[in-house]
């Protein structure tokens, strides 16, 4: 396999793993952020504190946690159920990264919708909005912050190495992603390749954030 093909493979796998983890964390994190930002319920403060803690959680700790969870000696891995990912698979990495990105997406979404004028919800209800329509309207008002939440989630996981290294194992052709490849090549002294991989990673992180900012600036601003 040529260098370019190997590089492409690693880039695609990184995008797949982090992209899927991002999607999952957006599907879970935006509703959670809406709930925490707009509703008052018992235990909310505790949940908010948990989300804020999760936003600053070190990836290696999540990696260790998921490792112990999925280990065949562990509580989930031992069950050997088909929908529970095995260690050293992309699915295990997706799980770890979803856990990492979820509090980022939920936390930023919570802050964004919490900053929307509470009178807006009353106003759109008075204009005939159902609950879902009213919630959607609040989400749309907060779109800048919600887009930032998604960007923060992506930035947090595409560039993390601790969790994917532990649960993915950095297996060539299978679980080797940009960050783990950089660690490996640096350890082997292949600085040329490590630098090339780093530039690709920087480029990806920048493109994703630029795209998001662009979307935010262009089609979201009336």
């Amino acid at each position: 396999m040529s260098l370019d093909a190997a590089l492409l493979e690693i880039v695609l796998l990184s995008l797949r793993v982090s992209g899927f983890a991002l999607l999952l964390s957006v599907l879970l994190g935006i509703p959670a952020g809406l709930l925490l930002g707009l509703r008052r319920f018992p235990g909310r403060r505790l949940a908010v504190a948990a989300v804020y803690t999760g936003m600053a959680f070190p990836p290696v700790v999540i990696g260790l946690f998921v490792y112990l969870l999925l280990s065949r000696n562990g509580p989930l891995g031992g069950l050997a159920l088909p929908f529970i990912p095995s260690l050293f698979t992309p699915q295990a990495m997706i799980l770890a990264q979803t856990i990492l990105a979820f509090p980022l997406v939920a936390g930023f979404t919570m802050a964004a919708v919490g900053g929307v004028d509470p009178a807006l919800r009353v106003q759109v209800r008075a204009l005939g909005a159902s609950h879902w329509q009213a919630t959607w309207a609040v989400l749309e008002e907060a779109r800048g912050g919600v887009v930032a939440a998604v960007a923060a989630g992506f930035g947090g996981i595409i560039s993390e190495v601790g969790a994917v290294m532990i649960v993915g194992g950095n297996i060539e052709h299978r679980t080797r992603v940009l960050t783990t490849a950089i660690v490996l090549e640096t350890g082997k002294g292949n600085f040329d390749l490590a630098i090339a991989l780093s530039l690709v990673l920087l480029g990806l992180a920048f493109s994703a954030n630029f795209l998001i900012v662009y979307l935010q600036g262009r089609s979201f601003d009336p």
Binding site: G19, L22, W136, E140, R143, S219
Partner: peptide, 22 residues
Amino acid sequence: MRNLSIFIAFLVFLAGCAAPPP
């Protein structure tokens, strides 16, 4: 509303790339 939908479609597209490799 449409704009946010476009954004969500973009996310789904990302996920399309993201279906775990067979």
